[in-house]
């Protein structure tokens, strides 16, 4: 497959995953604000910004509705949902012939939905409905991606983009909520705490899945265990890293070229880190450092992957 095409598919997928993550986190933040709690609206907004990885953008203005609309629509801000969808579509357009018509139409429809007057109207009425419909649009795209596209290299690069973005975002989210998760304040209202914890699960669309495994008994350690180490849940970190490993192996076995040792090493290391550990071990150690290390390794995987498949030097390629 052409490097340029792999590049575009990878980024198309990453941007859509990013949009979805932002939508969910925004939705949870807005719904938590409905209940009175000690945490101020500004604190919540800033926490949202940090977990979206944009610390120096969208400074708090005092108007939560305006801020929410900005995060949805402001294409001049790269963190905005609309900017992500736009970027995903631009990438898709560059490789229009590599994706199915259904994929293109889904993505295009989502793009136009975001630009329609109805979306603006909805954002002033029931913003939650709007966010739900964006998620629907993205899910439909993922669905047709898996059902209408050949599961070849292109599809694998889409998965790589999806899982790397997801792993990185989940690690960031957990890091931001680490304090509230692990340190119970004296006299804290149990009802509010419950809402916070459920909110965290809902950010990863994992409340129901969690309940199936652990019942509705919401315990911080179990949340961490579930979101970090669960083997079978698609939004768990370990699942995402396993997915990356799987896709890389599929690409490698289909192609003539063996992936570099560095790539095997960094994926293998991260996978082992999540596979051969327990939540007790993690909590005994420095949880913050652990999460930080995951993010650093995700970044490293991205770089090695990129320099091997997409932006390699001509000289190095000729030497092979």
């Amino acid at each position: 497959m052409l490097s340029r095409v792999a590049d575009s598919l990878y980024w198309m997928s990453r941007y859509l995953e990013r949009a979805e993550n932002t939508v969910r986190q925004l939705d949870v933040t807005l719904s938590l604000l409905l209940d009175t709690s000690e945490t101020s609206t500004e604190t919540r907004w800033n926490r949202l910004m940090i977990s979206l990885g944009c610390t120096d953008c969208m400074a708090w203005s005092g108007d939560i509705d305006a801020m929410a609309r900005k995060l949805i629509f402001d294409t001049s801000d790269p963190a905005a949902i609309n900017a992500c969808i736009h970027a995903a579509r631009e990438n898709a357009r560059q490789v229009r012939e590599e994706i199915s018509t259904e994929q293109w139409q889904r993505l295009n429809r989502l793009f136009h939905q975001m630009h329609s007057p109805q979306a603006q109207l909805q954002s002033r009425g029931n913003i939650s409905d709007l966010l739900a419909s964006i998620i629907d649009g993205i899910h439909l795209f993922k669905g047709v991606t898996d059902t209408t596209m050949i599961h070849g290299d292109g599809w694998q690069f889409i998965r790589l983009g999806r899982y790397l973005e997801r792993a990185y975002a989940t690690a960031t989210l957990l890091d931001v909520h680490r304090e509230t998760l692990l340190h119970v304040q004296e006299g804290e209202n149990n009802g509010y705490r419950y809402l916070e914890l459920v909110g965290l699960l809902r950010c990863c669309t994992s409340f129901e899945a969690y309940c199936q495994v652990y019942t509705a008994d919401i315990v911080p350690e179990r949340i961490l265990d579930f979101l970090l180490l669960n083997r079978d849940f698609p939004h768990a970190l370990r699942y995402a890293i396993d997915g990356i490993r799987h896709s890389l192996e599929a690409i490698e076995s289909a192609g003539a070229r063996r992936a570099p040792e560095a790539l095997h090493a960094c994926v293998g290391r991260l996978q082992a880190m999540l596979r051969y550990t327990t939540i007790e071990e993690i909590l005994r150690g420095d949880t913050g450092a652990f999460l930080h290390s995951i993010r650093a390794q995700c970044q490293q995987i991205h770089e090695v992957l990129y320099s091997h498949y997409m932006h390699y030097s001509v000289q190095a390629a000729l030497a092979l």
Partner: peptide, 24 residues
């Protein structure tokens, strides 16, 4: 067949190559 753009192609020693994920 592959649909390529100019930026997908490189030449070396009078041979044209395309940049693929599997190398040139």
């Amino acid at each position: 067949i592959d649909l390529v753009e100019g930026r997908d192609l490189v030449t070396h020693d009078n041979i044209v190559y395309m940049r693929t994920t599997g190398g040139l």
